[in-house]
């Protein structure tokens, strides 16, 4: 059980060394993608929020088919443009088309094969 919060300064560092098991147990939603945006891991908290099972999501491109509402310059473009990234943004998810205010944390480190999107209800 990883004792690390959504706002933890060292979250990206922790995640880079964490196992999927650890990530699955996090108290906030977390999407692990490769650098092209394809979903590598979808944790339990996020699966519950979106109403989507992990096995339906893993392997698909997050920005295009899983969370298309993030396919804009506020989210997707940031991952595309910035190799090193650790930013917060207030956003609205359209889970079942009901506007759901969330707080997002976008994380990526240059050289890493992964990038992370953390989700917290607000």
């Amino acid at each position: 059980m990883l004792e690390v919060g959504f706002d933890a300064a060292n979250l990206l560092e922790v995640l880079e060394g964490a196992s999927f098991q650890d990530i699955d147990e996090l108290a906030f939603g977390l999407v692990v993608m490769d650098r092209a945006g394809d979903v590598v891991f979808y944790n339990a908290d996020e699966a519950a929020r979106a109403g989507l099972s992990a096995d339906r999501v893993i392997g698909r491109n997050f920005f295009e088919s899983v969370g298309p509402c993030t396919n804009n310059y506020l989210v997707a473009q940031r991952f595309l443009d910035e190799p090193d990234l650790d930013e917060f943004v207030d956003f609205v998810f359209t889970l079942r088309m009901a506007p759901t205010p969330v707080r997002l944390r976008m994380m990526a480190s240059a050289g890493s094969p992964r990038q992370y999107l953390a989700v917290l209800d607000r």
Binding site: G67, P68, C69, T70, N71, N72, Y73, L74, V92, T94, M97, A98, P99
Partner: peptide, 13 residues
């Protein structure tokens, strides 16, 4: 009350 992702993207843009 309801909004789909495309609408979000369009409005954000």
């Amino acid at each position: 009350h309801r909004i789909n992702p495309e609408a979000v993207n369009l409005l954000i843009a």
